[in-house]
Simulated scan of single mutants.
Amino acid sequence: MRPSQSYLPAIRAAAGFALAPMVGVAGFGLISEGYRFIEDLLIGRSTIVSIIVIVAYVQAALLGLPAYFLLKDRVRPTILNAALAGIIVASLPWVTLSVGSFQLTASIQVITHTALAGLLAGIAFWICAAWRNSNFDFQVED
């Protein structure tokens, strides 16, 4: 029995939304030198990593899903478009929070780190959702 290919884009997009935030969090950890800037906090690293994971999935749900549904029929799914969308989804909340901040250098550093993590997450989403979209063959041999 041959599975319907109409479900394939939805499954691939769901996989992209499941994987991309984790890639972004891992990239953020590498970019931020293992969360070096939070070592002075009273909470442990596992707690802060958990918070960052939750924030990443909330950002993907609140900003990434609407962006996906608004852009999926209007813009070609290229790696550049996915990377730019990832940058915007990751850094928009931090840009908003840092408006009027007195610590401009720290704000720019956090925004840069989140933008680079968003770049990685956008590329991961593109790999899951759009790469080689038409080259799948569900031929089942008897």
Rank of each mutant, 00 (worst) to 15 (best):
117 A>Q: 07
41 L>F: 10
35 Y>P: 02
29 G>L: 11
95 V>K: 07
79 I>C: 11
122 G>T: 05
111 I>K: 01
54 I>C: 13
29 G>S: 03
42 L>D: 12
67 A>H: 07
34 G>N: 05
72 K>V: 12
25 V>T: 06
92 L>H: 01
28 F>E: 05
85 A>K: 04
23 V>P: 02
26 A>D: 02
87 I>N: 04
49 V>Y: 01
106 A>D: 11
123 I>Y: 01
34 G>K: 00
84 L>T: 13
54 I>K: 08
119 L>F: 10
38 I>H: 00
123 I>L: 12
40 D>F: 08
120 L>K: 03
54 I>R: 05
29 G>W: 00
117 A>K: 10
77 P>E: 00
46 S>P: 04
76 R>E: 12
80 L>P: 09
113 H>G: 05
81 N>A: 15
117 A>I: 09
93 P>N: 02
112 T>R: 12
77 P>H: 03
46 S>Q: 10
62 L>N: 04
97 L>R: 05
30 L>K: 02
56 A>H: 08
88 I>F: 11
95 V>E: 00
76 R>P: 11
94 W>R: 09
77 P>L: 00
94 W>D: 04
94 W>P: 01
59 Q>V: 11
51 I>H: 02
42 L>K: 15
95 V>G: 02
90 A>N: 13
86 G>K: 03
45 R>I: 09
55 V>S: 12
41 L>R: 09
115 A>H: 11
114 T>V: 14
90 A>G: 11
115 A>Y: 11
123 I>H: 02
51 I>G: 09
